[in-house]
Structures are given as C-alpha cells and as structure tokens.
Design a binder for these strands. Structure first.
Length: 425
RNA sequence: GGAGGGGUGGCCGAGUGGUUGAAGGCGCACGCCUGGAAAGUGUGUAGACGGUGAUGAAUCGUCUCGCGGGUUCGAAUCCCGCCCCCUCCGCCA
C-alpha cells in the first residue's frame, strides 16, 4: 500500500508510475478526497479539543459548586459536531483506503516498460542446454515410463492439476527440499521456519494477495486461506512489529506446499506437472533496511541461482517488464530453467523486491539506530526454488535413452547414494 | 466443545471513573567514573494522525492501555459485542 503523504509530495511521479503499469491516473481523485478528509479530521479534532477543555472546567466548577448548565450545553454542541464530522472523515478515509489498497506497487526506475512478458529482458545465461542423440521426452512421459508419476490416480482422488509421485520420484522431491534448505541455511545465512499453511485475512492482505486476488486462492469453510506461497507466512512474521535496526537484515526460509486455484489459467499448461493446484517450494524472504534492499535483491537471486548451478542445470535470468510484474513488486527477476522436453526456458524462480509496499500494508517498521522516528522496512521474497519444476528439469535434462534418469551428484547423499533412477521393478 | 483467567509502552509489569500517556524494572541513548571495559551512577527514552512551518528543526492539537460500540461533563479503569492468548476438563494426530 502506498504512503498517502508520499503521494501528496510526489503527485506527478505517482501517476507516471501507474502509467508505466498501464493504469489510469489516480492522483487527482486521491488528493481531492485527501483534502476533504483532512478538513473533516481538523473539525473533529477542534471539537474534541474544546470538549476536553470543557470537561476539565466542568470538573472544577462542580468542585466549587458553581452552575455547569452553560458549559454542558456547549459540550453537547461540540459532541454533535464531532459525531457528524467524524462520520464524514471515516467515510472519506475508507474511500481513500479502498483506492490505495487496490493500486499495485510502482515499478523501479530501471524496470523495462512494456505491456506483458514479451517486454521482459534477458540479462544473462548460465550453462549450456544439454545435447541428446535421441529425441528428449517430456517429464510426464519420463515419469510415467518410470511408473512413478501418476496423473490418472491423482485425478481420481482430486481431479485435474494434481499429480501423485511414487518411489524414487517421491524421494527425489524430498531430496530437493532437503538440499535447498540445507544450502540456504548453512551457506547463505537464512534461518529455517516451519510456518502455518492456513492463514487469516490479515496475513494475505499484508502481502497483497487480498483484496484483489482472492480468486487465485483456496479458502476453507471456516475462513482460513491456504497459503499460495510461504512468502505469506514468512513475510507476515514481522507484521505489526517495530524492529530494532540491529535485527536487520532478517533472512528466512521455509519448505512448504503451496496451493493455488489457478482460476485464470484455464487451458494453460494442462499437460504434465508444470502448473498444479498444489506444489512444493522452498521460499526465501528477506526483511531489510530501505537502503539495503536493492543489494539484497541481487544477493537473493544469486542464492536461488546457486541451486541450479549445483544441480548442473542451464538457466537464464530475466528482469520482468512493468506489464509482467506482480502486484506487490517494484522489481522482479525470474530465473528460467532450460527444459529439453519443451525446448524452451521456463520459470523456476521469481525474486521480487517489494520495497516498502508490503511493509506499509502490514505495518512492519524499524527504528533506525540513534535516529528518531520509525521507517517501514523493505521486504523481498524469492523461490529458492520451486521444487516441482526443479524435479521436472532434472527429469528432462538428465534423461537417458534407456528411460533412466541420472541423479545430480549433490542430491545423491539424500537419495541413498543412488546414481540414477531406474524404472520401478 | 465445557469451565475459569488474562490481553497496558521496544520488552516485563503496576494501575478499578478525573492533570495516568500511564509507577517501577529491563533494554536502549547520552554523560560521569575507568588506562580501556565491566560494575556503579546521573539524565533521557512510545506511536499514529492532523494544523502551523524552510517537508520530517520546532511547535500546537487529536487519537491510541487487544478491536469495535455504549454509559458519563470526563474511562486503561464501568457495560455490551468480537478477536486473541493461557490454565483445567473432554476429544484427538
């Protein structure tokens, strides 16, 4: 959510930012409401100030035994003013908040402008896509041939966009989660968290999925939301808190299932396990001082890339254009892994710097050391990595002609020192 | 689910109708002490919002003792509703 005071002082810049997002100007409306709200607020406060003074005078007069009729009548007049102006102030303020909570974060200056993903800019590549002396199969073909990836049974249980893994593939999923968590905690300073997967409205509002994107989420009958990403619980850990500067940066990681209704994705990626209602992911979240978030964003993206480097997977890093960024992000890097079965790069991680946007929604602040006052923290989140898609990448990149799949060396200690996945006997 | 207890400042913890925005402690900041540090000691130390103003100097005002409403001239203190936490019982992975 945007800081109203910042908008007052940067009106043109604000509308320019919205325009880069393809949105109409909003400042005129906001500032008109803001002026009316402040005027009403002032009237309320003046009436309150008078009433406070009268209350003291009435107390003193009663003690002396003086008549208080006149004072009481004045006090009641002020109370009427307070009530009517107060109602108006509340109405105006909630209208302002409704507008503010529906507007996305403004893009950082260096983010490329464009209407959609076609304007994303590839920054660099790492690694060479493998060459095959046979036609590489898609991951679902490999998985089904191994007898370890079962869409039919999953469909029986749950319908489309679910999968069931067995044997070595189930273990591979677990190995990937372990490997990623161990890397981030022991080498990159993230501390491991095992968070709730059902959260309340406020948490999902804080990270920006609510109120606009409720249709992308699953909701329980008693009002909980299933987390679409561990970003929600991890980031909201600091909601409402006033942190010491010495506590920053805070680096958190969690391996959790993620639940997404994929309401707007009808017909997209219907084959295979690219896009599921439920998938595993290791998430990275950083809470930083404002001046550190840009560097932290680079660091976080590097941490995510390191997973792919150690697995030996080719990838490229893309900076998303203004038209492709998420609601809360001011800048996003996507990491795309090479998938031989599709002959293309596909997103496997998305690392975003949300600046103060989420912090303002969830009222997460810190106190600068020595200084006075408080500032909103900056929040960042990134996949490190999406486990389901990493599993896909391993199957497609390390498949062999005979239908077996080589297990990357760094995973073997988690796989009972197996070197390859063989068809189920 | 049943019964009971409780939610106060960055943290702990007093406070049951009137200068209590709130005692005390911890923490923190600055000073004294010290060769330096610890200990000791002194002083200071909430946030949000609005007004004025050179826009975060200063100053005035309002709000905030879980949230929302009510009683009252006046509420952290009384009443109602809601949320959350804890204890015991029941149930249970």
């Amino acid at each position: 959510m945007h800081d109203l005071r910042w908008i007052r002082d940067h009106a043109a810049e604000f509308d320019r930012g919205l325009a880069r997002r393809g949105l109409p100007p909003a400042v005129d409306r906001i500032l008109t409401l803001d002026r009316a709200w402040r005027a009403a607020e002032t009237r309320v406060q003046e009436a309150q100030a008078r009433r406070n003074r009268l209350a003291r005078e009435i107390g003193a007069a009663k003690k002396r035994g003086d008549p208080v009729e006149l004072l009481l009548r004045q006090s009641n007049e002020d109370k009427d003013t307070e009530t009517s102006a107060g109602a108006e102030a509340t109405r105006l303020r909630s209208e302002i908040d409704d507008i503010l909570t529906g507007l996305p974060n403004l893009p950082a200056a260096e983010v490329p402008d464009g209407p959609d993903e076609t304007a994303n800019r590839v920054l660099y590549h790492h690694g060479e896509p493998p060459r095959f002396d046979f036609t590489p199969l898609s991951h679902e073909a490999i998985g089904e041939r191994l007898g370890m990836m079962d869409f039919a049974r999953a469909g029986k249980l749950s319908g489309s966009r679910f999968v069931l893994l067995r044997g070595a593939l189930a273990r591979l999923e677990r190995a990937l989660g372990q490997f990623m968590l161990d890397l981030h905690t022991t080498e990159f300073g993230y501390s491991e968290v095992s968070p709730p997967l059902l959260v309340r409205d406020e948490a999902v509002f804080g990270t920006g999925q609510l109120p606009k994107f409720a249709e992308d989420l699953f909701r329980t009958t008693d009002g909980y939301w299933l987390v679409p990403t561990a970003e929600v619980p991890l980031t909201n850990l600091v909601a409402g808190e006033l942190l010491d500067e010495s506590a920053l940066p805070l680096r958190l990681t969690a391996w959790t299932p993620c639940f997404r209704s994929e309401a707007g994705a009808a017909g997209k990626d219907t084959r295979g396990m690219i896009r599921q209602h439920q998938f595993e992911k290791v998430e990275l979240v950083s809470i930083t001082r404002p001046e550190d978030s840009a560097a932290e964003h680079e660091r976080m993206t590097a941490c995510a890339q390191e997973v792919l480097k150690r697995l030996g997977l080719a990838y490229r890093v893309v900076v998303l254009s203004t038209g492709d960024m998420g609601f809360a992000a001011q800048k996003t890097y996507d990491i795309e892994v090479w998938l031989p079965g599709q002959g293309t790069y596909r997103e496997i991680s998305s690392c975003s710097n949300c600046g103060a946007f989420q912090a303002q929604r969830m009222k997460a602040r810190y106190r600068p050391a020595g200084g006075k006052g408080t500032l909103p923290v900056h929040t960042l989140n990134g996949s490190g990595l999406a486990i389901g898609r990493t599993l896909i990448a391993i199957l497609e990149n390390f498949q062999r002609h005979n239908g077996t799949v080589v297990i990357p060396a760094v995973l073997r200690s988690y796989m009972g020192e197996q070197e390859a996945i063989e068809p189920a006997g």
